[in-house]
Write a protein that binds this DNA or RNA. Structure first.
Lengths: 101, 101
DNA sequence: CGTGTAAGGAATTCTGACACG
DNA sequence: CGTGTAAGGAATTCTGACACG
């Protein structure tokens, strides 16, 4: 279910090193709803490797001059596609096990 | 080569939450050579998910009353075994590609 | 041996705001 | 719109040491 890629465990400083983005940019993209880091008990942001990958995609698109609102839509589309893929796999597995019973 | 499991990106506070171990214990096991976290520029420790797993194994063994020196030997043995496995796989791959050429 | 804790300092992160554009 | 920066405060982490056992 929850793989390492999805676990929110990386602090913003490390994410900044990993992506080359400033803390300001990382926080701003969150403000615009492009990603949702977790939070520690006292407010510290926690990111997953998935978040880091998302940020790298954002950086690419920004360099191409794309605005955050547009990038947000693109990311949502990707997420939807991924969900459909996941459900198809789940469906296949269910069909498989129904047959074996 | 370097998967997410091996990337040193988690701070000690998060590792403490993930493992249930105190900061003191985590640092002590390092002092005894049972694991080697990375370091940020200014001295902060950085752990990988692999390190987190190692710490959980250590916690189990400690609960059984095993001393750190003994646990260290066990971990080294595991590491050696893993290395041998990795090399066998590499060997198989090499053999395979030699055949296909 | 393994772990807790108080101590002082350094580095990190947070938020809200002003600036420029 | 997107990003930098200075500001003040709070939370994190570091090291070396003393304590107990």
């Amino acid at each position: 279910m929850s793989s390492y890629k999805e676990k929110k465990v990386i602090s913003i400083g490390i994410v900044s090193e990993l992506t080359g983005l400033s803390l300001r940019k990382i926080r701003y993209y969150e403000e615009r709803g492009l990603l949702s880091p977790g939070r520690t008990g006292k407010g510290g942001r926690k990111y997953s490797f998935d978040d880091v990958e998302t940020l790298m995609k954002i950086a690419e698109r920004r360099e191409e001059g794309v605005q955050t609102a547009e990038i947000k839509k693109e990311l949502n589309k990707e997420k939807t596609k991924q969900k459909i893929r996941d459900e198809m796999i789940k469906g296949q597995l269910n069909a498989h096990f129904r047959m074996r019973k």
